[in-house]
Design a protein around this nucleic acid. Structure first.
Lengths: 265, 265
DNA sequence: CGGAACGTTGACACTAATCAATACCAGTGG
DNA sequence: CCACTGGTATTGATTAGTGTCAACGTTCCG
């Protein structure tokens, strides 16, 4: 289980994601499986485990669960029991307030862990919506805690995942607090391709799984601004955009937009 | 150790913060101490511990450390070894990028835990700056991990603290992504007094420990906008402001500003 | 084919940023 | 004690950047 490490690029996508699933006689929505022959193993298992430790960790993933496009993995207020490792598909997480505000707090892809928000109150505080048909490994949190009391490497891994999420959110705060529209969108695109590339996809081409409105919500912009900014990038020859297909022509230009904050000497 | 729970209000501040410190013959900047007679105990210790578990947890806090106003508890890039529980004082955490961007990611007060960002990379990714003279309990992370393998209640507590930070940051993302200046400042003030009140301070009066610029950085606004928005609140009779002294006259008005997002039916 | 959801583009309004001047306050040293 | 200084805060005038509203185009899917 558990997310991407920088070194572990080039995994995923090479085999059909479902090719190593041996269907067992169970609920069709929840098939028992093993981590050790999962093609995302390198993306999300702690490294350097002894054989017996590995056996134990196998037991964490109780079942898998499929979520259809538009379906919810969990919803605000729902009781928290498990973390989820995304096997295939793409999610957004978002919070909604009573007064109708809505904020996309992140987009998650294969190999990433989702559900950490639920731990504090033992209830989820946001919604996780599948943006394409998805499958996740269900990891009961009690088991994770139990096992990470026995396996220090797992414990460390869990701590790192949570800390990584905190640091990621710091980055989003920087983006929302200090960047202009172009800078936000450039940073967003670079982040997406970087993560996709770590999963074996192209460095320059990507298929957006979300609408302009969802991008806008995540970036603190209106959908029209997102659209206009895309158009601007196209005019400048930085990207090609055909609806949700994006090809990055000039990665360096995007990086300049993000980093070339005018600096007074 | 470890932060505020809603129930545990009304602690702190009643005794002089240093009154239960028995100076031992050690480095003057690092005095060995016990949690069990700390006046912040109810704010930050896991509940329902057995006596022997409590004894173990005592051992986590190795030493205390004082940080002068303007000084740094830790800096970006510095090796991560410990979490810190704030005993007295007030901190900001902020990230700075090479191109000169700066973002305050949070303000922390007594009873809160600081340093979680350092776990992933084993190096800190932000700076923690004291906004007034402060004292923290140093908790070596290796010890925390060791003990939380033995004491499930502690383990759960650590997980909750990290999850709470994630949820807090979701709230900040909502603020930065969807609120206008007045809404941001109103939400900020309400959050501050709420936390101060949980520590035994007034519900209506507060002394800002940070500059307008720091508030602005946190809220994604320029200092002039923060100042103007304060003035607007004063005109409307919602608050009184004398430099860093703020008295909240009309809490409900602030709540309305935050929540009364125009709602299409 | 028709409709709904999504995306693009234009005109205009408005919020917050910028630039600039002035005021306030705490601390320092004469 | 006062004057001075540097950091901080307030306020005004102006502008840049997004939001808003609206019309139209595109794509997908039943």
């Amino acid at each position: 289980m558990f997310e991407v490490t920088p070194e572990s690029a080039e995994t995923g996508k090479r085999r059909d994601a479902a090719s190593d699933v041996k269907p067992l006689p169970m609920n069709p929505l929840s098939i028992k499986v093993a981590c050790s022959n999962c093609n995302l193993r390198e993306l999300c298992m702690p490294m350097g485990l002894k054989a017996d430790e590995l056996d134990k960790i196998e037991e964490i993933v109780a079942v898998r669960r499929k979520v259809k496009r538009g379906g919810r993995l969990y919803s605000n207020g729902e009781r928290f029991t498990s973390l989820f490792a995304i096997r295939t598909g793409f999610f957004k997480t978002c919070i909604t307030t009573e007064d109708g505000r809505n904020q996309v707090t992140g987009f998650q892809m294969a190999g990433e862990i989702i559900g950490l928000d639920g731990i504090v109150k033992e209830h989820h505080t946001c919604d996780a919506v599948a943006l394409e048909d998805a499958e996740v490994c269900v990891m009961p949190f009690e088991r994770i805690e139990e096992l990470s009391r026995e396996v220090a490497a797992l414990q460390r891994h869990v701590h790192k995942i949570m800390s990584r999420e905190i640091v990621r959110e710091h980055g989003v705060m920087l983006l929302l607090g200090s960047m202009r529209a172009e800078e936000r969108l450039a940073a967003f695109l670079l982040n997406l391709v970087q993560r996709l590339h770590a999963r074996g996809f192209s460095q320059s081409e990507l298929l957006l799984r979300m609408t302009r409105e969802e991008i806008g919500s995540y970036l603190g912009l209106k959908l029209e601004t997102v659209s206009r900014t895309f158009s601007k990038f196209v005019e400048e020859g930085i990207v090609e955009v055909k609806q949700r297909h994006v090809r990055i022509i000039d990665t360096e230009a995007l990086k300049l937009i993000v980093n070339h904050n005018q600096q007074p000497c």
